[in-house]
Every structure is written in C-alpha cells, then in structure tokens.
Simulated assay, not measured.
Amino acid sequence: MKQDLFESPDYYLLDDLLSEEHLLVRDAARQWVKRDVSPIIEAYAQKAEFPKQIVSGLAEIGAFGPYIPETYGGAGLDQISYGLIMQEIERGDSGVRSTASVQSSLVMYPIYTYGNEEQRQKYLPKLASGEWMGSFGLTEPDHGSNPGGMTTNFKDKGDHYLLNGAKLWISNAPFCDVAVVWAKNEEGRIHGLIVERGMEGFSTPETHNKWSLRASATGELLFDNVKVPKENLLPKKNGLGAPLGCLDSARYGIAWGAIGAAMDCYDTALRYAQERVQFGKPIAAFQLQQKKLAEMITEITKAQLLAFRLGQLKNEGKASTAQISMAKRNNVAMALNIARESRQILGGMGITGEYSIMRHMMNLESVVTYEGTHDIHLLITGADITGHQAFK
C-alpha cells in the first residue's frame, strides 16, 4: 500500500499565527488523510468511484459543518479551522473536499442560516454525523454562470408545493439523502426547498465519463411533479442572494482547499527533484528546476497569507463576496499552475498514478470552473472596484 510521505511547507512560519485549537484540528485532519485517503484514492480515481467508506471519517474529523454549533451536531469551530480542514482534505483529493464542502456550506449552512428551528433539529444532526448526505441544486443545464435565469419552479397546491425542473453537475447527487434545491415560485422569486430521497418524481442519475473529480460522485437532480411539503421551504431568506450566500461559504473553503492540492504537488515535485539524478547530479541542482520550485513555494506562501487574512475577516463577519471571489480565483489558478509545473519536473512519471500530480491537475480543472468560473470571479472583482457590472 502506498505510503504518504507528505511534509507541509510553511515558509513564512504561519503555524505561529494559528491557535492551539487550529493546530489540533488541522493535524487531526492531516493524519486522517494520510491514513484513510492517500492509500486508496488513486485506485478509486482510476475506477471513477467515490469511496463511501470514508464518510464516517469525514464526520469524525469535523468536516461536516465544522462551524455549525454543537447544539445541532456541528463542531462549533471558527472559520480558520474550517479552512484548515478543507486544505488538508483537498491535499488528499479535490473530489473528497467537494463532498465535504457541499455537505457543510451548501446543505448545512442554508438549513442553519435560512431554516427554522424544526428544520435545524430534523436535518443538521444527521448531516453532521454523516448518517445523511446532502446535495445542492442551483446549476441547471442551461443556466450556469447566470443562475438567476433558472427555470426549475414550484407551484402552490394548497397543502404542498409541486416542484418541476432539473439541476446538473451536482456533487453528491447520486447518493444524497436530502437536497437543498433552489427554484422559482409562481411570481418568479427564488426560494430554497429541502427535497428528500424517496419523494415521488425525484431522481438522481449519475454523470459518467468524467476526466476530473473521478473519485467524487456527480449527477443530476430531476424533479417531475415532486410533491414537497410546505414545511420544507426555507423561510428566512429568498431571492438570488440566498444561494449566493451559500456559495460565499463554499468558495471560502475552496480558497483554502486549493492550497492543499498545491502543497501536495509541490511536496511531490521537491522530493522527486532531490532524488532524481540526471547528468551526474539531482535535478534539484539545476537552475531551471530551482526556478520552478522557488516560484511554487512563493505562490503557495502568498495564497496562505491571503486565505489566513480572509479567515480572520470571516471570523469578524467582515469578509465580502468580492474578497472571497478574489481568494477563490487566485488560489485555484495558483494550484493549477503548480500542478502543471510539478508534472513537468516529474517528466513522464508525472502522468502516472504512481504520483498524485496528474490527478490533482485534472481535479483542479473542475475546481477552477465550479462555484464561479475563473473569468466570472475576475468580473466580480472588477465590478467591486469600478462600480460597473460587466456581465449583465
């Protein structure tokens, strides 16, 4: 079985800025990834299957709703702890981090933030323990970057709502027990509905033939006259701002998670460069390889500082959507570039499943697109600094 030799880079001694709790949380997640994810993830990626046996482990390290209060089964941690957990999980695999991100930020977060007490008590403890898994239905076949154009809708039928439509590219869909679905009412206003597996007319076909996120389960959410009880409507917020608020939380986690993928690629490339001998010396002794490695650690360090400061702002309730967009865009692009450079350092070996780099590279091609594309996040920043929206 493959041994995980990962050593985390900390060039600017950022561990000194973390609390004892932060370090305990991060190290618990790191050890779990080394023990339960790294030895199996290549095999699961090769066969395009999500390793469902790790769900209980994700729950045990607090990956499901880490910032949700303990009253509802969460760990009651701060936002930096949440980020560190996502960093460590994505160091193992972006698809596994996607599973945790969706559960935490896109399912538990809206139920906790927009739901009533009955909904919190019913759903959150089972989601926190991993007994139930959730998915988030916003993206549609014809509406990705423009979610406000969605056509999924529900009608008031007196004692229930009747839901129709379809959602696409949904992480966790094939095995989800509940789905937080965003749909328009008869007036065209967007609301969140909790849809449960087993409701007649609700199906979740799996998406196959992916070259990316192969160890993550992706699918569709299809609604054919689904009767949704009225008590399943999230009452505390509606409009497009409601699902976008969830995406802020998820994008924040991605900004940390991408650092983990970059760290793993860098660590793999550094170790390989020190061991691989060509022309009578380790390739790490050649200037061009040192240039690559030096630029990698510089970009990782910059991303760490960006994420840490964003975490402080999140803890203080000051982080804006535009600030989160900047971090998501920068850190994912950084990780993707490092994956590509790391693959070159490994030469032909870099394309094999013997190493994690090619898997990270393929995964990050999805991460750079989902939950706001690279270009859309650029325009969010542009709109914020100029006051003019370019994508409307």
Rank of each mutant, 00 (worst) to 15 (best):
M1I: 13
K2D: 08
F6E: 02
S8K: 13
P9N: 03
Y11Q: 14
L14P: 00
L18V: 15
L18Q: 14
E21D: 12
L23E: 09
A29Y: 03
V37T: 12
I41W: 05
I41M: 10
I41E: 07
A43C: 06
P51F: 06
A63M: 03
Y72R: 11
G73D: 09
G74N: 06
A75C: 11
L77D: 06
Q87H: 01
S94V: 00
V96E: 00
S98P: 00
T99E: 06
T99D: 05
A100C: 12
I111K: 08
Y112N: 15
G115Q: 12
Q119A: 12
L138A: 02
H143D: 00
H143E: 01
H143L: 02
S145E: 14
K155R: 05
K155I: 09
D156Q: 09
Y161V: 09
L162N: 07
L168I: 03
L168Y: 10
S171A: 11
A173H: 05
F175E: 15
V180T: 05
I194R: 00
F202Q: 12
E206G: 05
A217W: 15
F223I: 10
P235E: 13
K237C: 10
L240D: 01
A242P: 00
P243D: 01
L244Y: 08
S249V: 15
S249K: 13
A258N: 12
C265F: 04
Y272Q: 08
V277N: 03
I283N: 07
A284V: 08
Q289V: 09
A294L: 01
N315D: 13
A319E: 12
S320G: 13
K328H: 05
I338R: 01
E341S: 10
E341L: 03
R343V: 10
L346R: 06
L346K: 08
Y355N: 15
R359C: 06
L364Y: 08
S366E: 04
T373V: 10
D375L: 11
I376W: 13
H377E: 13
K392S: 14
